[in-house]
């Protein structure tokens, strides 16, 4: 536990001292507020609905989260500090979970930024609070799964750019799965449909807490965290 804490603290420190995370947050806030301005202020909708902005915000995660997770392991490989971690008494699980926990904190911050818009909206009408809460849960689960994908991608290369692009491609694949499923007829479409992240998120946005959807994100997270551990463990056999 102490080793987990040590790694978690170190990661948090690294996040808040590296310019990349600030830039990623800044870009996210900038673009999502432009979209909010266009969808809410210019479009002047007659109803107050979080979904007016959440759709855009969540799609932006596909771009922002790779930037936030790309350094997790790539940096260690590049600096040679993986030799410190891997030769320390820390178990691989502790190392990976410590890093993942730090990434999760960032995801909470990211979702927190998205909540600025419903707060602004609430001045112009009443928000459906139940829907808000399920939406937030959904977004947290979504970002957690996305962070796990980013974590996994960062174990693959020592170059942050390669890592970022790899996780971007993986996330985009999950995101466009719906379109693929729609365009491919028959059984293939049926097979692909359950893996589309945005359809899974839809139920949360509608105010429905669906067990299958919750489980989907948790499973996705677990799979990629375990895959990361496996990839790192495999590096010893290189």
């Amino acid at each position: 536990m102490r080793r987990f804490n040590a790694i978690f603290r170190k990661e948090m420190h690294a996040y808040f001292t590296s310019p990349t995370s600030y830039v990623a947050f800044a870009v996210y806030v900038l673009i999502s507020s432009i979209l909010f301005y266009m969808n809410f202020v210019m479009f002047q909708p007659s109803i107050i609905d979080f979904r007016l902005v959440s759709g855009n915000a969540t799609f932006m995660y596909v771009f922002v989260i790779p930037l936030l997770t790309m350094r997790l392991f790539s940096d260690e490989f590049r600096q040679g500090t993986d030799e410190l971690l891997l030769t320390s008494p820390a178990r691989m699980t502790e190392i990976v979970l410590g890093k993942y926990a730090a990434a999760l904190v960032l995801m909470v911050v990211l979702v927190g930024f998205t909540l600025i818009y419903p707060i602004v909206m609430s001045f112009y009408g009443t928000l459906d609070m139940k829907m808000m809460i399920t939406s937030i849960i959904g977004m947290l689960l979504l970002t957690a799964a996305m962070a796990a994908v980013g974590l996994f991608a960062s174990t693959l290369s020592q170059h942050q750019m390669v890592t970022a692009i790899a996780s971007f491609v993986m996330l985009l694949t999950f995101w466009t799965m719906l379109d693929w499923a729609a365009s491919s007829s028959g059984t293939l479409g049926e097979w692909l449909m359950p893996f589309a992240m945005n359809t899974r998120l839809d139920s949360f946005m509608k105010g429905v807490l669906n067990g299958a959807d919750v489980l989907f994100f948790i499973t996705l997270t677990a799979v990629f965290v375990v895959l990361s551990i496996q990839v790192l463990e495999r590096k010893r056999w290189r």
Partner: peptide, 16 residues
């Protein structure tokens, strides 16, 4: 591993 101290060729340091 807890019985070993290791200094690799490049010291494993975090610059920040």
């Amino acid at each position: 591993r807890s019985k070993i101290g290791y200094l690799p060729e490049t010291p494993p340091l975090y610059p920040e």
